[in-house]
Design a protein around this nucleic acid. Sequence first.
DNA 1: TCAAAGTCAATATA
DNA 2: TATATTGACTTTGA
Length: 348
Amino acid sequence: MELAMENIGNLHGVSHSQAGDLMSSPHGRPSTASSHRNLVSHGRPSMVSSMASILEGAGEYRTDHALSGHLHPAMTMSCESGMSLSSTYTTLTPLQHLPPISTVSEKFHHHPHPHPHHHPAHQRLTTGNVSGSFTLMRDDRSLAPMGNLYGHYPKDMSSMGPPLSPLSNGLGSLHNTQQTLSAYGPGAHLSNDKMLSPGGFESHAAMLSRSEEHLARSLVGHGPGMMSNLNGMHPHGHLHSQANGSMLTERERQTVGGGQGSGSGQVEDINTKEVAQRITAELKRYSIPQAIFAQRILCRSQGTLSDLLRNPKPWSKLKSGRETFRRMWKWLQEPEFQRMSALRLAGE
DNA sequence: TCAAAGTCAATATA
DNA sequence: TATATTGACTTTGA
């Protein structure tokens, strides 16, 4: 059951419904974070720089943009988003506690949520293709101003690139990850952000996605055989194979990174330790408070996130808690600007 | 019914 | 101020 459900959900990290999430908050508590998130999708192209605004919740965004509707799930994902169209899978969803991650698209459609601000564009994200999606959005967002909270970002950049590697304890993939990360890493971003122009953005985006792919691979088992590596590190290897896959489609990505076994493209096995490390690194890198990330991306409390990051349980030992890690994992897979958008959107 | 898992909110700590 | 810890609560499954 669980597997099936999971698969479904990740099927498209994109627009899968989150049935279980219908109940906005676990314990029946009012989900604070999710209670008021506006579905509007407005992402800013300038990733890091946008972060600041995102976190602040400041930042203007345009809901009117047609593209907004196409944002990647991550971007729109919010804790509450979970209901809605997912009717399809609704019955299947086993994990009730967590609002499904990939609820993104649903949000747009509509959700029972009482909030007044539903995005006008209820276009559903039919395609899971991340690259495609963000390509579309790029222009609006790319123009966003910079200079935000993350002023320190630049400085981090210099150091961050390499730092990411720590996560690689043992992960062969890390090599790649590292490499790619550095590519889109702070340093890269910085420069890119500044020069982001619609045109340039694309390449940037492509690069980002590629990086993410690498990361994804490193985080997840490589195929059925590798699944067992839950917390262990993955052997080196072939991660590079997809190098030319910079433009991989969502589907491809799923296949590569998470499609193990089930074939549904779902991530079957996540290296929780690795994910925790990666998240920790990213949060530091962008100076994103745990509370913000926990609330906006995971729909969890700061304390919960802190515990998960510090004491990640092996995937095999997780039950409903897998959903939380999936969210983290998915977030990591998103292009940077989408991550930021997700943070901001969720916050709104 | 009970234990485990998962989470939250409050509180402590750095 | 951000993060870590903790106690209590809910849900789930045996």
